[in-house]
Nucleic acid binder design. Structure first.
Length: 309
DNA sequence: AGCGGTCAAGTTGAT
DNA sequence: ATCAACTTGACCGCT
């Protein structure tokens, strides 16, 4: 059974997550700034519940939460703990309500911090900021019952074995809350599945298999081999990523994402799997719903409302 | 009210 | 040495 996942935002549905900028908040007094941020966090908790309702209603079994759900939470100057916000209690309560809803409807949720999280950086301040970011996202993940906080391997710095070793050692600095949710994903320029599988074996961190990245940056493993080995790193339902190239596989910049998924890009070797497939496509929910229709027409078993993994 | 420039953060590799 | 690519639109300050 395949569970399809939607990433972060909507193309057509009027569900919006609010953001702000450090420049704007930095101009305000601390208290005024916190009041503004508090309102944004509250609005985002409401938007998340709407997003989950949409997914439940349309049989989309997984939703990825935007990493800016609590805007500027880890900013070096403007960052805050949620209990510093005027509506802090209410915010946590609303996120916990999202968690209850997701659990009741069998929806999976996950996080994917952006490229600034580099656990194997050679710069200690970058690693420290990355750990801080993972702790923040894992706190929200706990509120909403998300089981995955997924990151990339980071940089190679001219020496992948050393870089992977630094990655492994940084894990020891995470709380249980963060470490138990952390996963690592192959990317399209540095780390392949083959590079990451030994790290996963050594640390117990699951591998999120991005088949599009693997096609852009192959490593000698077939898709079936990479899928099998990635799935074996999971003690629960595995997670994978799928995209189609912007202008076809022969076109320029195949690593760039298309608006929709070409159903021909869906790996045949996923057919017998129980798997969450996050759809990374610019047309967002429209792309997920179209893929859902096409897979169903092709006889693939899909699930969006079954009990949690 | 509408417009357009701007946005916290890291790393790689193309030019 | 510089800069786009990752995500991409929404915000904010100016008229």
């Amino acid at each position: 059974m395949i569970r399809l996942g939607l990433c972060c935002t909507f193309a057509d549905e009027p569900i919006k997550f609010a953001t702000t900028t450090a420049t704007a908040v930095g101009r305000l007094d601390r208290a005024v700034g916190l009041a503004k941020l508090s309102a944004l966090c509250l609005a985002n908790a409401d938007a998340l519940l709407q997003a989950l309702h949409f997914c439940a209603q349309r049989g989309i079994g997984c939703f990825r939460v935007n990493c800016q759900i609590l805007p500027l939470a880890t900013h070096p100057q403007l960052g805050y703990a949620v209990d510093e916000l005027p509506a802090g209690d209410q915010i946590v309560e609303k996120f916990r309500a999202c968690g209850s809803f997701a659990r009741a409807r069998g929806l999976r949720t996950c996080f994917h911090p952006d490229q600034f999280v580099v656990l194997n950086s050679q710069r200690p301040e970058v690693v420290a900021a990355s750990l801080r970011e993972l702790e923040y996202q894992s706190e929200v993940a706990e509120w909403i019952g998300a089981d995955v906080v997924n990151i990339h391997g980071g940089g190679a710095f001219g020496d992948k074995p050393s870089a992977l070793d630094r990655f492994a050692r940084a894990l020891d600095r995470l709380s249980d809350r963060a470490r138990s949710r952390l996963t690592v994903e192959n990317d399209d320029r540095v780390y392949t599945p083959r590079d990451l599988l030994p790290l996963c074996a050594a640390t117990g961190i699951p591998l999120v298999y991005d088949v599009h990245h693997h096609r852009c940056h192959p490593d000698g493993l077939t898709e079936a081999e990479a899928t099998a080995q990635a799935c074996a790193t999971w003690q629960r339902e595995p997670l994978a990523h799928l995209s189609s190239p912007l202008a076809g596989w022969q076109g320029p910049g195949p690593q760039r994402h298309h608006d929709y998924i070409d159903v021909g890009d869906f790996p045949e070797c996923w057919r017998q799997r129980t798997l969450t497939v996050e759809v990374e496509a610019k047309a967002k929910e429209l792309a997920v719903l179209r893929l859902q229709r096409e897979l169903t027409a092709a006889g693939w078993p899909l699930r969006g409302d079954s009990p949690p993994w």
